Computed example of a mutant assay.
Amino acid sequence: MGPPPPPPPLLLPRRDGALGRLLGGPPLGWQGSGWQAALLATSILVSSNLPIHSQEISILLEPSNLIEEGETISLTPQVSPDPFRDCRWLRGMELIMTHEAGQPLFVLGEAYSGREVMEQDCSLYISNATEDDSGTYTVIIDRDGASYARGDVDLLVAAKLSQAVLQPAKSIVEENGNVTLQCITSGSSVFTISWVKDGQPVPETEVLSNQSHKLMLRNITRDVAGSYTCVATNPFSNVASNPGQIIVTGGTFPSALDSPDWSGASWKSGDIVKIVAGTFSALLVICIGLMLLFFCLREMQTLEKRDAASCPCAICTAIGSASVL
């Protein structure tokens, strides 16, 4: 029994809807629906017509698996230079291109962006890399229809971060309430977020949720009040946001033994009224006392001039006796 027949030509729809095209040639013109394209790709990859003897190979990715946006990447299969029947490159499950040995033309797939070039030795070059180029790259080399080599490698492309903005810039929340801060970044989609409060890292135990780059604090207490910033970091840059202020209101008024927070950030609105009312009452008592003292002194002077034997008030009598002594 001879070897199985060769696999059918690998043609997948491009982004423009066409099934594919040959370099230097016109589009093939066949239009297919999404499910037809997916069925075709799946049938090709898992078809019983694929070669039955496989070899796992490594791929040399240069300059590295992690590169900055804008660089040029080369992916070279580490395989013996034996003649091959065809070579195909995929990103994820999407075809980039296929090259048949001895032929000057290439079949392009939907993952082809116009920046990819395949050499005769099956090496793949990607110029001016973008974050969209990140993913798992797979090479499949069909040697003779009965054996093939396959390899995979992961690539991460990241751009420099340009800005981080914390929203809202000011949050006023009642004690035992909830507050959410969001860190909005630009320049790159590859980054991690960390949070800082009053210049110190926010403990992970206080971060109940960091999904979607949000800091969510629940059932907050007064010690949550302060200035917050978020820091976005990736392998090539890091940026800090504008500060965001959290003000906590509510709770009880601090006692005389407590150290007052003169910033007022943690007092409820009625506390200020209590302070003003208490101050006014104290001033009123002092004024009344001064007026009473002035009246008694005046009466004492009048009685001295008249040689009066008594004073109409006990306080004046005491003061007059003290002055005679």
Rank of each mutant, 00 (worst) to 15 (best):
P5R: 05
P6A: 13
P6H: 11
P8R: 13
P13Q: 06
P13T: 13
D16F: 04
G17Y: 01
R21M: 15
G24L: 03
G24M: 02
L28V: 12
W30I: 13
W30H: 15
W30T: 12
G34S: 15
W35D: 13
A37Q: 07
L39T: 10
L39A: 14
S43W: 09
I44S: 15
S47C: 05
S47T: 08
S48Y: 08
L50P: 00
H53W: 15
S54T: 11
Q55D: 10
I57E: 02
N65R: 09
N65Q: 10
E68K: 12
E68W: 00
T72P: 01
T76H: 10
P81E: 05
D86H: 11
D86M: 14
W89G: 02
L90M: 08
L95C: 06
L95K: 13
M97W: 02
A101G: 05
A111W: 03
S113H: 05
G114E: 02
E116L: 02
M118Y: 00
M118H: 00
E119S: 15
E119R: 11
C122P: 02
C122A: 06
Y125N: 09
I126W: 01
S127P: 00
N128W: 05
S134D: 03
G135K: 06
T138C: 06
I141W: 04
A149Q: 14
R150L: 14
D152H: 09
V153H: 04
D154Q: 12
L156Y: 00
S162K: 12
V165Q: 08
L166N: 04
Q167I: 15
K170W: 02
I172P: 00
V173K: 03
E174N: 14
E174I: 07
E175A: 07
N176K: 08
C183A: 13
G187K: 00
S188T: 04
T192P: 00
W195N: 03
P201G: 07
P203I: 09
E204K: 12
K214S: 12
L215G: 01
T221S: 15
T221W: 04
R222M: 08
S227D: 07
Y228M: 01
C230R: 01
T233A: 06
P235N: 04
S237V: 00
V239K: 10
N242W: 01
G250Y: 00
T252P: 11
S255N: 09
L257E: 13
L257C: 06
S263P: 03
G264T: 00
A265W: 15
K268Q: 15
K268W: 07
D271Y: 11
V273H: 08
T279N: 10
L284G: 09
I286Y: 09
C287F: 14
C287V: 14
C287L: 14
C287G: 14
F295D: 15
L297K: 09
E299A: 11
K305R: 09
A309S: 11
S310I: 04
C313D: 14
C316A: 15
T317K: 09
S321C: 05
A322S: 13
V324S: 12
